[in-house]
Design a protein around this nucleic acid. Structure first.
Length: 963
RNA sequence: GGGCGGUUAGCUCAGUUGGUUAGAGCGCCUGCCUUACAAGCAGGAUGUCGGGGGUUCGAGUCCCUCACUGCCCACCA
């Protein structure tokens, strides 16, 4: 029995089932279009690939919820929707994970050797790498699993290699010795972006270096330098001072003796030195500081690297060789002090860079690395960064919120060359071979056997791998087949590139978004359009829009972190409240620009919403069953209006329902509200206003459909007196039975609208709450729906957005306000909840007619026994007034005079305030002259109403008997 | 040091190109198990829109300024 629903909605009872069903049936696969396929705009989203090592966190869930809403909405709107999932091999993160595993076995990766280690990582990936995608499946993400990618897949690796070789050929990739950020724990270079700075209370050590006199002997004079990293002095090759620093003019051209090392080093002059900082004299260590490196280049100084890969002092360090950098620092400071060369130790707060991945203090260090020259111009096509700037400047990529456009451009304008080599084992190995004969480098698409320069076979491949972001930066082109775009093999690329929107957090704006724009534009521009014409910048971008969403924080706005222990595990919350409730929470809090303070109180509220929908369904199904028992059509038949299962008929129903002018007010009203809601929701989604869309659906379903429509429709849902078919075949119906038939006709009509409105509401809600709506939608069709999933039905989308059927809504609102006023009066007069009382209404003809036509509704919803239309409300009755009517309940119990006086006094005060404000404006000539006529008219009307209400309220107060 | 946000009800947040007397959810108060739903229904209270100044007929909305707060970028040893 599909209609035998439990009283409370239990998400756990249905979610796993549907999640599995969607995957098993491969419902969201978007196959490669074939020649001759119906053309339709594609809607493509590339899932920002989570790390294979990842576990799903709230940020992922927000990100995925937004993408899923967009994709489901577009798919239901008839577009060729593709949401493409995959994972990132995450070089450092994954290597660390496996190293840790090895450590537990007491092993090191070096013991295994490169090949065995990589095998081990693959094994780890096969075993654990799918965890995060499994979580995604559980959450019902409507991705195309048949296209799932991994950044180290064969085809994607081919793309990486092609990109590297091509950039090398274009002279945009070079190898060089530069200062890079070195993580001694990960033992690799990392890019500037992977360094996070923390404020650190350290020291500024002032050390005096002996000035050498003639003959290279100590002159007895000293030059005092200041440093935060005394251990690097082992690599000093000079001391720099400002050329105009008068304190040191006499030292120009002199030399110093580097303490502890006893190396003779020059004093050099450079404008870069700040005279105000420290002592105005800077030690120069080109191998361990980017500024010093630049100084060294300018002054042609040597670089002395004093540390090994693990930040221990190397052979250059003399007595300190083999010491860890921190130990060396202590020892050096102690030794200097002993020699009387330590002048001062001052407290100093400065920023210290840490490895983003492992939080180890990074060491700026000179090393041989590979770089992408992002600013270098290539003849005829500008630079990579320049192209990426143009894409945004020329609005080929649109950012939401717009302000991120500025952030992006600002970064792109100050961008430096990108260090892409990593000294790791796990990743795409750099396709460069060094020749030990001629020492030149061979870069090739196919593994070479001999040096391209001298022909010698003495070549070895670089041991470095590429930055993970190099491969993920290529994803938008590589997942659709690049670089193998041939006439026979380009359908995916033509259909799906550029992708529609990138949905992501700002934390990877530079890491990933910016790199995709650079690489996407650069490589796609070389792929001609299908008709052979050159590809414009607009068609080269990797995505046409970027939607940047908020960060999910905890309920106290704190950033979630493992160390703080405030991480909310989405899977746990989902188990507790249901996926749909969590999704709805995230959607409704996802207003652009602000972070989300995730609060389970909201989720509780949306679980209640899910329950509300569930119970509305129970109510509807209860009546459907009643109707069926009485021999009326099933909702399936009602919905189709025919049993013809042809596509056209089914398609026809998947819009918004309409009812005729003769249907009761409530029917026309609820469909008008549905229409209005669907206008708002579609528009909100166009603009990534998930919050607005969610709020609008919530308000419609709960506030309009349940609170009003269901209550009203109950009056007509009467199937109880239906004579059976057998009975009727044998005799004429009696008079009572004739009445029952009439009643039944009304009931069937009511049920029809009810089911139509409900079915449409489910579709409207479906992208937000896919599980609940799937379950209920199928139940609407008695388990035999016209589509395999609600996700494949049509999204309610009005044909025009301009039409607002206002009169119906206005009439209904008038009726509602009458009911609300009566309810309030009842409460004030202390009428018992169950008692039905007569009311007196003084009003105009319009409301009188409306109230008479809908008398039953008023009576039921306001618990009224009789509506008396009177020329004026009887004396002694407490009344409420609106601009349209006065109303009072006829109830013998005495008015609570003090309470009534208080209420009226408050009301009068409020009205007076409003009246004064309106009069001030209307008395203002400037306002009358300059404000639009419609605003002035509105205010005049408002003022008239306020004045009327004020008169009524004052009269009512005066009429109150004294206490 | 440079840049970008935020500050609206007890809490979390909406509030479109300035336009009538500023909204929602949660929480709170009162009364109800009214046979879809107590995860519910009905009614109710609640705001110097961070401070100050300006522009305007009109400012939560635009401008200036101050305060508090968050983030991003840079990395002066």
């Amino acid at each position: 029995m599909p209609h035998d629903l439990p009283k409370a909605y239990d998400p756990t009872a249905i979610e796993d089932h549907w999640a599995e069903y969607w995957v098993r049936e491969n419902l969201f696969a978007q196959p490669t279009p074939k020649e001759g396929d119906k053309a339709g705009d594609s809607y493509v989203i590339l899932l920002p690939p989570p790390n294979v090592t990842g576990r799903l966190h709230m940020g992922h869930m927000l990100n995925q919820t937004e993408m899923d809403i967009l994709t489901r909405w577009q798919r239901m709107s008839g577009r060729r929707a593709l949401w493409l999932p995959g994972t990132d091999h995450a070089g450092i993160a994954t290597q660390m994970m496996v190293e840790r595993q090895l450590a537990e076995e007491g092993k090191k990766r070096q013991e295994l050797g490169r090949e065995a280690f990589i095998d081990r990582v693959w094994a780890w990936k096969r075993h654990y790498g799918g965890a995060i995608l499994d979580q995604m499946k559980r959450l019902g993400a409507s991705v195309d699993w048949s296209r799932e990618y991994f950044t180290m897949d064969e085809n994607l690796s081919v793309a990486v290699r092609e990109a590297f070789v091509k950039l090398y050929e274009q002279d945009l990739i070079y190898r060089g010795a530069y200062i890079v950020n070195w993580c001694p724990r990960c033992q690799t270079a990392i890019s500037d972006l992977e360094v996070v700075y923390d404020e650190h209370k350290g020291h500024l050590w002032e050390i005096k270096y002996p000035v050498l006199g003639p003959g290279g002997k100590d002159s007895g004079e000293f030059l005092t330098i200041a440093t935060t990293r005394p251990e690097t002095m082992l690599g000093d090759v000079a001391v720099a001072i400002h050329p105009e620093d008068e304190r040191y003019t006499h030292l120009h051209g002199k030399k110093l003796r580097l303490p502890l090392v006893n190396r003779e080093i020059p004093i050099i002059l450079d404008d870069w030195v700040s005279r105000d900082f420290g002592t105005g004299a800077v030690k120069v260590t080109p191998a361990h500081d980017p500024n010093d490196f630049a100084l060294g280049q300018r002054h042609h100084l040597p670089s002395i690297n004093i540390m090994d890969d693990t930040a221990h002092i190397n052979a250059e360090g003399g007595a300190y060789t083999g010491l860890d950098r921190n130990v060396a620092r202590k020892k050096i400071v102690a030794d200097l002090e002993e020699q009387g060369l330590l002048v001062a130790v001052k407290d100093h707060v400065h920023n210290v860079g840490h490895c983003d991945r492992c939080k180890t203090v990074v060491e700026p260090r000179l090393s041989l690395q590979w770089f992408v020259a992002v600013n270098k111009e290539v003849e005829g096509r500008g630079s990579m960064a320049g192209t990426a700037r143009a894409a945004v400047n020329e609005k080929k990529i649109k950012f939401t919120p717009e302000m991120y456009e500025k952030t992006y451009l600002n970064w792109m304008e100050n961008i430096h060359d990108w260090c892409i080599s990593r000294q790791l084992w796990w990743g795409h190995r750099i396709p460069a071979w060094e020749c030990s004969t001629c020492h030149k480098v061979t870069v090739a698409r196919v593994d070479p056997t001999a040096c391209a320069h001298c022909g010698a076979a003495t070549i070895t491949q670089s041991t470095d791998v590429l930055d993970t972001w190099f491969s993920s930066g290529l994803l938008p082109v590589s997942v659709f087949g690049w670089p193998n775009i041939t006439p026979e093999n380009r359908a995916d690329f033509d259909a799906f590139y550029p992708t529609s929107v990138l949905v992501t957090g700002f934390d990877i704006l530079f890491f990933w978004v910016a790199r995709m724009v650079m690489m996407g534009c650069w490589f796609a521009q070389d792929v001609p359009m299908k008709d052979g014409s050159p590809r414009s910048l607009a068609d080269s971008v990797p995505f046409r829009e970027v939607y940047i969403h908020a960060l999910v924080r905890d309920a106290n706005r704190e950033k979630m972190s493992k160390t703080k222990g405030n991480v909310v595990d989405p899977i746990e919350i989902v188990k507790q409240y249901g996926t749909d409730a969590v999704r709805f929470t995230l959607a409704s809090m996802a207003s652009p620009g602000t972070d989300i303070a995730f609060n389970v109180a909201r989720t509780e509220g949306y679980r209640a919403f899910a329950n509300k929908i569930w119970n509305a369904a129970r109510f509807i199904f209860m009546n459907v069953d009643k109707a069926a028992e009485a021999g009326f059509k099933t909702p399936f038949e009602l919905l189709r209006g025919t049993t013809d299962p042809s596509e056209r008929v089914i398609d026809g129903l998947f819009h918004l329902p309409i009812v005729g002018e003769n249907n009761p007010l409530a029917d026309r009203w609820i469909l008008a509200e549905l229409y209005r809601t669907s206008v708002v929701v579609n528009e909100a989604l166009e603009n990534y206003r998930f919050d607005e869309a969610a709020a609008s659906i919530y308000q419609f379903f709960w506030g309009s459909f349940c609170d009003w429509y269901l209550e009203i429709v109950k009056l007509r849902l009467d199937f109880s007196k239906t004579p059976s078919r057998e009975e009727l075949s044998s005799r004429q119906p009696t008079e009572d039975e004739e009445k029952a038939f009439a009643q039944n006709a009304k009931a069937v009509e009511a049920l029809g609208t009810l089911v139509l409105a409900f079915e449409s509401s489910l579709r409207l809600l479906s992208p937000f709450m896919p599980f609940l709506t799937e379950e209920l939608w199928r139940a609407v069709f008695d388990g035999n729906p016209p589509r395999k999933s609600i996700a494949l039905a049509r999204y309610p989308r009005p044909r025009t957005t301009s039409v607002t059927p206002a009169p119906v809504i206005e009439e209904m609102e008038l009726l509602q306000s009458l009911i609300v006023e009566v309810r309030a009066l009842r409460k004030e007069a202390g009428v018992e909840e169950k008692a039905a009382v007569p009311v007196e209404v003084r009003t105009n003809d319009r409301l009188k007619q409306l109230a008479e036509e809908n008398r039953e509704i008023v009576e039921r919803l306001a618990r009224v026994s009789e509506v008396r239309f009177v020329p004026s409300i009887s004396a002694g009755l407490a009344k409420h007034s609106t601009a349209q009517f006065d109303v009072a309940v006829v109830y013998e119990r005495k008015i609570d005079i003090p309470a009534e006086r208080e209420r009226l006094t408050k009301e009068i005060a409020k009205l007076e305030k409003g009246q004064a404000a309106a009069e001030r404006q209307l008395g203002n000539e400037g306002f009358l002259a300059k404000a639009p006529a419609q605003v002035v008219e509105g205010l005049k009307k408002q003022h008239a109403e306020t004045t009327l209400l004020l008169e009524k309220a004052r009269a009512a107060l005066a009429a109150l008997p004294p206490e």
